[in-house]
């Protein structure tokens, strides 16, 4: 009993300390981004701003705004398209399994783990060939294609929880593959769509390698623009930190409001299917 009385406060203490450690970057980023330029000095780095100043946000946003919108134009169609494809595939692979379907599924899944460097050289040539190099639609295509494995996996696992009996009784009632998909699967897919949508949204928003190699300045999504903004002491640190917050905001908001689904997607993408 005494041990327990001692360990519980200790547990809270440890958790609190670790939380503080984890929040240090957040503190630094927020504090720095709110400082006026003359307070962004080494000596005062850890101090709170004397007054709150949003000018670094204005400057960062003026630099990042076009790229921010590029990311928006990229992420919305790419998320919708890849969720649609994933749902179709998941439907077939969970409810209409044919011989060899498991092998095909495994082969598709492998695409999720490859280092994208190993397809980058042909990919760029291919995109150039079809006129989509350095375009947002080109990036959309890339994210849709390389999103197929993960969205398929997520929907397949999700649909697996829909009992086969429902499908079979619909079949007895004479419903075909389309009808079942439209009238049974889609209405039941809402949760799956949210999870997959959030996952793809976060991943595509945060992606960097395709973004930096397939697009150039005007078409760069926000992460590349943020990287270009940083890494030098010429651009003031408050602006860089404000830029980091702007770039992180959409996915952070998604996490804050829909965190449960985000974590579900995270687990769905890894737990054995």
């Amino acid at each position: 009993m005494t041990a327990k009385a001692f360990t519980r406060p200790l547990m809270y203490l440890i958790l609190a300390l670790l939380s503080i450690l984890f929040l240090i970057p957040v503190y630094v980023v927020i504090v720095t981004s709110l400082k006026p330029l003359d307070e962004v000095t080494l000596a005062k780095m850890w101090a709170l701003p004397t007054h709150i100043d949003f000018s670094s946000y204005a400057e960062a946003f003026s630099k990042l705004a076009p790229n921010f919108w590029n990311s928006v134009y990229l992420v919305i169609p790419a998320t919708i398209l890849s969720a649609f494809l994933g749902s179709l595939n998941g439907y077939v692979l969970s409810k209409w399994r044919f011989k060899g379907a498991d092998w095909i599924f495994t082969a598709v899944l492998f695409g999720m783990f490859i280092p994208y460097q190993s397809i980058l050289i042909p990919l760029i040539r291919f995109l150039s060939h079809i006129g989509l190099y350095n375009t947002i639609p080109g990036l959309i295509l890339v994210h849709v294609v390389y999103g197929i494995p993960i969205t398929t996996l997520m929907f397949r696992n999700f649909y697996a929880s829909i009992p086969m009996e429902m499908i079979e009784s619909a079949q007895i009632d004479g419903a075909g593959i389309f009808k079942i998909y439209r009238h049974i699967m889609i209405p039941l897919s809402l949760l799956g769509l949210v999870v997959v949508g959030i996952w793809q949204f976060t991943n595509i928003w945060n992606e960097f390698l395709f973004a930096v190699t397939i697009t150039t300045t005007d078409q760069h999504p926000i992460m590349v623009a943020l990287q270009n903004l940083s890494g030098s002491q010429i651009v003031q640190w408050n602006v860089q930190m404000a830029g980091a917050i702007i770039a992180a905001l959409p996915t952070l908001l998604v996490y804050i409001f829909l965190g449960k689904f985000f974590v579900r997607g995270m687990l769905a993408g890894s737990v054995k299917g």
Binding site: Y73, N134, P137, L141, T216
Partner: peptide, 22 residues
């Protein structure tokens, strides 16, 4: 269908800015 979708995007969103060969 998918290419058409992409095509639409290219016209409406990027305004044809250095949009490939066209």
């Amino acid at each position: 269908f998918s290419l058409a979708l992409l095509g639409c995007n290219s016209d409406s969103k990027t305004g044809g800015k250095s949009g490939g060969k066209n």
